[in-house]
Amino acid sequence: MKRIAERLYNGIIKENPTFVLTLGMCPTLAVTTSAINGLGMGLTTCAVLALSNLFISILRKVLPDKVRIPAFIVIVASFVTMVQLLLEAYLPSLNQSLGIYIPLIVVNCIILGRAESYAYKNPPIPSLFDGIGMGLGFTFALTILGIFREFIGSGTFFGNRVFPEEYGVTIFVLAPGAFFVLAMLVAIQNYIKDKMEAKGKDTSKIGSGCGMNCMGCPEAKGCSKAEKIKEAEDNDESEEEEKPSEDKEKKASAAEEKEEVKSETSSDEPEKEPAEEEDTEAEDDKESDEEKEESSESDSDDKKPAQNKPSNNKKKKGKRRK
């Protein structure tokens, strides 16, 4: 239950697809000319999103990994077709005003994004509510946008006249107005977020939807959790490396000084393993210390240009691990 509530909160506020993730901009900018259009588009997307999330999640163990995207599209497209037929039958006016944007829900990046980053990795019930949460967040954003644009642009609120039409600023009903209002709303949202951060509340974007795998995650860039995960991974690797190398270092350090000159010139040394490239600073420090000692002892080292030193390092390490 807690997880369901968390999913809904995440979709509507924390990871609002429009204001925070800025996904699905095409329908956002194109159909929000009036509040009712925004609401209609939002709810349509919400229905498709919830159902497609549910089914993708159910089928996630059956779908082969390589063809998952086409499979997602087939699932999403089936639901979009159903929803469109329903709209045509029961809400023809809304269907008319949304036009091409209903079939385009198939390629809406919110839906594919949630399928890929949540539904494909999580059980059906949380996926369903993730879809509902995201859909409601999208609906909320589109309706707000629509209300502002309709109100300023033509002086009505859900079709009810508030002030005479001649005072409406038509540009807000047209495409530029969508950008103005969206920019303002995102600015307000960021302002509130900054205030919350100043008060010490946690506003980090990624909730439990994170699969701890930043490869292929659309939100990895700028994600605070991604940095933590990467740090943790780096630390793990360095710990593994640290122990064997320390043992060997003690033994090797004596021998190394003698073999110094040889190791620099010999090119038969084994290649460095790829994992070693992420060396920790601690290791580097030790080596640079060693190097100072070595260089003070051996004359040939002093004369070498600075660029050669990193390669020295690599070779030495390779030898040490033998």
């Binding site: 600023v169 038509t170 540009i171 530029p176």
Partner: peptide, 8 residues
Amino acid sequence: CFLLISFP
């Protein structure tokens, strides 16, 4: 241009 689009 803002005015031209808004109040043609």
